[in-house]
Amino acid sequence: MSHVSDFLAPADLQRISNLQVLARQVVEGFTTGLHRSPHKGFSVEFKQHRQYVPGDEIRRIDWRVFGRSDRYYIREYEEETNLRSTLIVDRSGSMAYGGGVPGKVSKFDYATRLAACLSYLMLQQSDGVGLVTFDTKIRRYIPVRSRVSHLRVILDELDQSKPGEDTELGRVFHDLVPMLHRRGLLVIISDCFGEVANFLKALAHFRHARHEIIVFQIWDRDELDFPFKGWTQFECLEKAGLKHMIDPVMLRQAYMENLERFRSELTLGCRRHKVDLVPFCTDEPYSNALAAYLSRRLAR
């Protein structure tokens, strides 16, 4: 199997080294110790023998069986369908939140690293991988390819993407449906902020096109615990000029209730559309995401 670094130029390697190294470390670290190694491949698998009939290709005759039985038998193989995965990464402004703490990973950083890991893993398994980045509209669409060299394209795009605009999950996903001609696995990496109803409608649209969907919802711990104290001015990351000066202690209870309502609406909606919703916090290890992905992959 070709190593990912073989396909990358030194300059590119330098640029995207962080993502690449991280992806490799995570995937290999994760796969070590598993009973079934992904390196054995899934290309062909023996199914049965049948008698040769005129017209069959000569090279498909099993000569070992001929040697033992003096008869011509053809080896039949079951061809395995390769997985076609499209990573849909949210690069809206809200994904830029990282708590303002130096050294802490923002939600977007976490999303890109997660996307890199998944891409690497999929390509390692000879699955096809594509990438879509979006905010208010689709910013970049990279079609599904299963070549290992395709990883470079994906990593390059992930590295160049920066969060900053408003989000329109519903409209973007509706626009995306016609672009995905063949059915496959859609991996949505987003905080899913916005109108829940629109988001669920879009998921329903995907499901109608017979796509399998797994949603990695990225949270920051601050968004889940709302730990702020003292007078604080909250400035919106998506809409410039929108800000509120509040005493967060007084509002925490109402915020937590609203958060719970949002999460339960989303969870129930996804369950209704048979969509896997996997919430993630940026302080969680990436391996958890890979485990979730493989769990879903093996379930197919």
Partner: peptide, 26 residues
């Protein structure tokens, strides 16, 4: 109140609804 912190916040749609409905009470 004069020594407030500034937080650039992503989940504003969750917070804004809370502020809108609870502002008078608060």
């Amino acid at each position: 109140k004069s020594r407030f912190k500034v937080v650039k916040w992503g989940a504003m749609h969750l917070l804004e609804m809370v502020i809108r409905t609870n502002q008078r009470r608060i």
